[in-house]
Structure formats: structure tokens, C-alpha cells
Design a protein around this nucleic acid. Structure first.
Lengths: 344, 344
DNA sequence: TTGAAAGCGCTAACAG
DNA sequence: CTGTTAGCGCTTTCAA
């Protein structure tokens, strides 16, 4: 009769080793290993004995030992500029969900938009993980290549790099901006302020590329430095107005929402006096009044795609994720006369 | 003369072992180890040789081997119901930042609000990590104790449990609700609908506890099942109105924002006809029109406190984080006559 | 100050 | 089908 404690009470701790189990079941550690990993030829009688012993002591294989032996940790690393930003949070959610589905773990690191920390975190995580996912990396290209060399597998989100071992999943923001500009053109907008994202964001450059189309459409685009957070939009709104645009396109929805608030404070009617557009379609954007016109992107899909890139097609190659125009109430016909500049 | 490649070009890969370094530097692996870990007595000449060799091959110690030997992985695990929810995303951000500060890593797992997945994820992560942080865990108390037994160290966020080895960091939501109700009482509100959070949320029960005070204040509180997301609030708004409240308190700001949208659709004036209150002070809440009155909580601090609980004071004990009332435009005097119920 | 050797917990040959 | 052995990469005695 086994000594198994009744009622499945919690076994001491995760401290039991394979030796303990082997001793109790009166078999070799090899046999225990065979039973635990499954699919190996072991008699049912022994299997039962081992399982009972394992349950008794609450045995769980030590992952460090497994990793050491196998050379793979079943872990993926995710590095993002800001873990608190819903955009990256949802990417992480998507990746972690897919990874967990097949028994992989997810290690994370936030960099606070600091390229130096980003570089160091990436190198650090690379020691541990089987694959590294860098979200919107801000570091230099040479360093990115260094990270690639130090990683078993590297995938980028929203940045591309011609390199044999660096894959990427990117949103086609260039196309997005083009669609947005066309939408505005349909409303007769000819003078647009673009609120730029963080300095080293590749995806910002893609957006800027999209504006070339706008200029071909006869629109004037005035880019001004801003950022990626709500408060950046709020703080830059006055500056944007000085250029007397009839429409503002923000780096993303958060920024647009910040602008929105400032416009309301100034008593400027949206879209009557000014049309406002975001990018990414944050959850909130459907809940403002008026709703925010935006270029919608499925962030969770971004994460899922990134995971698939790892498993299905490691190495070079770029997966494109397209978005779609979502027209809500924040855009409308350009006003007849341009707004006067507000006093600062 | 060393063979070091010029210009710091990326060394082959993270494949170099301590043996490679030892061979190149013509020393034993023990010496390499001593140099790498530092603080050990090694001649400067040998130190230099080892460092050069390590740099040359891009040597980085294998963390699995270190973990196996040391019995600690320098890693913390974070489990949350929804990684995409800004509330948990910010907690994660806080924890990860603190952990990284001292060279620790952060492993994450989302559970999609599923207590079963939560339990399994926790047990799984426990094998790896030095400490486990469970955010708003939904699993049963016995299972929580099981997880505690399997973990080296366990800290809960927004749930308490009398157990010698389970610590907790909690927001005082009971007090928060009390403050909110007093605020409403000042405006003459006597009939309040409370939109409940997820079924197994301990923090929801704390809120409900807070409402007892309200009832002592002569207010009637009608709790109705809702959820934690914006769409939950949107979907439950009509139901809430049926009870003809003069004020609605939502489980959190997201829910309140969802309600807000529905109220706007229905043409109900906030706060003229109905006062609306959230909890947690999400970033958006300052950017709606009118702004959302709420009970503000610093989520990043929650994460930081959780980390400190691990390092400074493992084991039992509850750290309380208090919040504060933030009055914005969504609350005002109760209307003279109650709203008629809207047709469904 | 340095090296040799043992062993962390586990799995994969290789025998039997 | 099962046990023995070797060794993953590293750190840490113990000697020299």
C-alpha cells in the first residue's frame, strides 16, 4: 500500500528530484524519465508505479536540467518599448497565448524607449530563449545584426532589415496613410498636419513614406515632432494648430485622443473646424464623441503572426499585415476658410 | 597577438562555452568562472587574458547551467487574467522594470480569465521561477495553497489569503467605494447601480463590502452582473437603467467608459440625468467629455510594491495600497425626479 | 593564485 | 523492457 497522502493535499514543495521518484518506485532514473516523457516502451506495471511515486512526492522535472540537456528552453523572449502601451500589451498577449498553446513560455522586457536598454535586454534574453521577438526596435541596424548573431532566431515587429536571419512582421502603415489621405481628399482637405511618432521608429518612417502619395494628390503635409502617448498629443495640439491645417493625422490613436481633448478645451469643433485621424484603432476610439476615424490594425493578430513566423518560417522574410480604414465621426468636409492660428 | 576580429563584428553566435574560453586563454574552466563571476582572487594578467578570450568568442554563460547549479533562475513569473488589459499591463510593466533593475527576468502568462488555465500556468511557471506573482487570481483557495506549496515564493495582487507563505499587495477598494458613495451622497444620490466585475474576483467582493457603508448612509445599492471590459459596460447599460438609478458605479473605468458610450447613444445627459463613476483611473478617463470621476490607483506602483514584497518581506503579510478620489465632470447633483426606465 | 574533480537534474546512448 | 553510463555547461570544494 502506497504512502500517498489522501485527498491530493499539496506535496511538500517542487523540491523532489527524479532520484526520489526512482527510489520510491524502485526503478532507475532512466525509467522514470521514460515514463515522464511518454511514448517510450515501458511496461504498464512499472509505468503505474512510477506515476504513483511521482504524484506522491509531487515530482516535476527541473526545467533548467532539461534545458541544459536539450539546448532549448521552450521559451520565447519579447522586448517592447513600453509594456504598458496597449499596442504592445496586445501583441504580447497574442504571442504568449500562441506560445502557451504549445507549451512554450514567454519572457518579457520593457525598455522605456531607451535604445541602449533595448540592446542590452535583447542580448540578455537571447542567452535564455529559443527565439527573440523585438517589437518596434529603436536600436541601430548594426546592433540589431549583433543581436541576430546572438539569438537562435530573431523576428522583428514593425521594422525590416535585409539580413539572412532576421524575419519581420510589419503593418503596412505606408498604405494606411495613403488610404487616410485619400479619405481626407474626398472631403476636400488640402492642408494636413502629421504628428510624428518616436524618433527612431521605423514605422514612423513608413507613415511618412505614405504621405508622398498625399502630396501627389495635391495635399500639403506638415510633419511636426510629437510622440506616441496621449499626453504627447495633448501637448502638441497647440503647435499643430499654428500651421492652420484642416485635418490632423496623429502617429496613433493615443496621440489623436490627446489632441482631441485639447481641441475640446479650445472649443474647436471636430470635425466641423478640424478633422482628426488616428492610426491603429485603439479600443477607446469607438467610444469617443465623435468616434475617431482611424486605420485599424489587429494587434493580437500581429502577435500571433509573429509566433507563426517563428515556428513556420524562421529566418529572413517579411510578413505584411494590412489594416483597414475605419470611418467614424471625427472626419468630415474641410471647412471653407482655414482656421486662424490660436494664440499660444 | 590575439585573433580578435576587428571592429567588434558580431561573434559567431551565443554558442561558445566556458571550455572554449578556457582553451583560448589557456586556463582551466574554474578560472574562467572565477573571472566571469568577479570578486574572486585571480591575477590581473590571467584576468585580462580570460576577458579577451571571452570577448573574442562572444562568450556568455549558459543560464540553464547556472540555474541548475544555483537552484535559482533569477526569474519571476507573472500570471494575469488578461495581458491586454492596461491595468495588468501596467502592473507587469512595474514588476518587470524593478526586476530588470537587479538583473532578474520576468516570465508571463495570460489566462483569459479561465481559472483552470490560471492554475495550470501558475504550476507550470512555478517550476522555473524564484517567485510567482498572481494578479487577481480567480482560482479556488485550496488550489492557491497548492500553488503556494509548489512555489518558492508567492505573492498575490488584489486577493488575500490567510496562509503562512502567501503574501499580498492589495488596493483598498472597500475604502474606495466608501469614498465614492460619500461623494455621491454629497450630491444627494440615493439610488445607485453597481456594475459588478468578473465572478471570481476578490476585489469585486471588496467593492461590495464598501457598499455596506453606502447603505448605512441611506443609499440603495443595486448590484448587477457585468464584467471588466468596455463592451461589458456598453452591453449592460440598458439593464442598469431599468433600475432607475441616479448614479452608476462601474467595476472599473473601462466598464464606465462603455456605459458612457451607450448613454450618449440614448441621449442621456451625464451628469445631468445620471452620474457615472469608474474605478482605477485609466489614462483615458481624463480625456472623455465630461471627464470620468473615479477612484485613482497607481498600477505601476502596484507592480513595484509586489516586487518589493518579494525581495524585502517574503511570506505572509498584506501590503495595502490606497487610492484617491478624483472628481471630474461625470458626477453632479442627483436629478429631482428619477429617470424613467428606457424601453429595451 | 590556480587546477582537478565532483556533481547540480536530467536524458540519450548502449548494453543486457 | 530496463539499468548503467556518460555528459549537457557551469561552479565549487579540495589540493597543490
Amino acid at each position: 500500500m502506497s504512502k500517498t497522502s489522501r485527498g491530493g493535499a499539496a506535496p511538500s514543495a517542487g523540491r523532489a528530484t527524479i532520484h526520489d521518484v526512482a527510489r520510491i518506485a524502485a526503478v532507475s532514473t532512466a525509467t522514470v524519465s521514460r515514463v515522464m516523457s511518454g511514448g517510450k516502451p515501458v511496461s504498464t506495471e512499472v509505468t503505474d508505479r512510477v506515476r504513483a511515486a511521482a504524484r506522491e512526492v509531487g515530482y516535476r522535472p527541473n526545467p533548467a536540467a532539461q534545458t541544459l540537456l536539450r539546448g532549448r528552453s521552450q521559451t520565447i523572449g519579447v522586448v517592447a518599448p513600453d509594456l504598458g502601451n496597449p499596442y504592445f500589451a496586445e501583441i504580447l498577449k497574442g504571442v504568449a497565448a500562441e506560445a502557451a498553446e504549445v507549451g512554450h513560455h514567454t519572457l518579457v522586457a520593457g525598455t522605456d524607449e531607451d535604445p541602449e536598454r533595448e540592446y542590452r535586454s535583447a542580448l540578455e534574453l537571447a542567452r535564455w530563449v529559443d527565439g527573440l521577438l523585438l517589437c518596434a526596435p529603436r536600436m541601430s541596424t548594426p546592433r540589431l545584426k549583433e543581436v541576430a548573431a546572438a539569438s537562435r532566431s530573431l523576428v522583428l515587429i514593425n521594422r525590416v532589415l535585409r539580413h539572412p536571419s532576421i524575419g519581420a512582421v510589419v503593418v503596412d502603415y505606408s498604405e494606411g496613410v495613403k488610404v487616410l489621405c485619400e479619405h481626407l481628399a474626398g472631403f476636400g482637405h488640402e492642408r494636413i498636419v502629421y504628428l510624428e511618432g518616436p524618433p527612431n521608429a521605423w514605422s514612423d518612417r513608413q507613415r511618412q513614406r505614405g504621405f508622398r502619395t498625399a502630396e501627389a494628390l495635391g495635399q500639403t503635409v506638415i510633419p511636426i515632432p510629437c510622440g506616441s502617448a496621449m499626453q504627447d498629443g495633448y501637448a502638441t495640439a497647440d503647435e499643430a494648430l499654428k500651421h492652420q491645417p484642416t485635418a490632423v493625422i496623429a502617429f496613433n490613436d493615443h496621440v489623436a485622443l490627446g489632441v482631441f481633448t485639447r481641441l475640446r478645451e479650445l472649443g474647436i469643433d471636430v470635425p466641423g473646424e478640424l478633422s482628426l485621424i488616428g492610426i491603429d484603432d485603439a479600443p477607446m476610439s469607438a467610444h469617443t464623441d465623435p468616434g475617431l476615424t482611424t486605420f485599424a490594425v489587429s494587434t493580437v493578430d500581429l502577435g500571433r503572426l509573429a509566433w507563426q513566423k517563428f515556428t513556420s518560417d524562421p529566418g529572413a522574410g517579411v510578413v505584411h499585415l494590412s489594416g483597414s480604414l475605419v470611418v467614424r465621426g471625427s472626419t468630415g468636409p474641410a471647412p471653407r476658410k482655414r482656421r486662424r492660428a490660436t494664440k499660444r
